[in-house]
């Protein structure tokens, strides 16, 4: 265990590898803490930067949509619902698996991957 003991001793003088997100010390309530951050009362410990091409929350532009139903056809999680009257689709974020296959398939680029990933919420919308 000498090798490991050496490593551990070195680590004593190094910065911890884990990025403490959202705060250095766990807050009593994460939601409460995030609210405080919004109000400007607390400072958020920045998350690890996201690389280019990250597949986050999908942004849907209803104006651009032509109702071709291709996204419905390729979606593995049934996250799209076709609205007969409007001839558009509805995107259900809670069902989405973020494979971004719909982004690839959309002929008019109405669907785009964003970098947003903090998606847990009490509100189902």
């Amino acid at each position: 265990m000498f090798e490991m003991a050496k490593e551990l001793f070195k680590q004593l003088f190094k910065k911890p590898f884990t990025n403490m997100f959202p705060a250095k010390h766990a807050p009593k309530s994460t939601v409460g803490f995030l609210k405080k951050v919004e109000e400007g009362k607390a400072k958020l410990n920045e998350p690890v930067p996201i690389p280019e091409g990250f597949r986050g929350k999908i942004a849907y532009d209803k104006e651009k949509c032509i109702g071709c139903k291709l996204c419905i056809k390729v979606c593995p999680a049934n996250a799209f619902e076709y609205l007969e009257k409007e001839r558009k689709v509805k995107y259900h974020l809670s069902r989405c698996t973020f494979c971004a296959q719909c982004v690839d398939v959309c002929p008019v680029n109405a669907l785009v991957s964003t970098k947003e990933f903090l998606l847990s919420d009490y509100n189902k919308k």
């Binding site: 690389p51 280019e52 091409g53 990250f54 597949r55 698996t97 973020f98 494979c99 971004a100 296959q101 991957s113």
Partner: peptide, 12 residues
Amino acid sequence: MEALTGNRITKG
């Protein structure tokens, strides 16, 4: 893997 594919685990 995240940089190459866009996700860490289920890479799609």
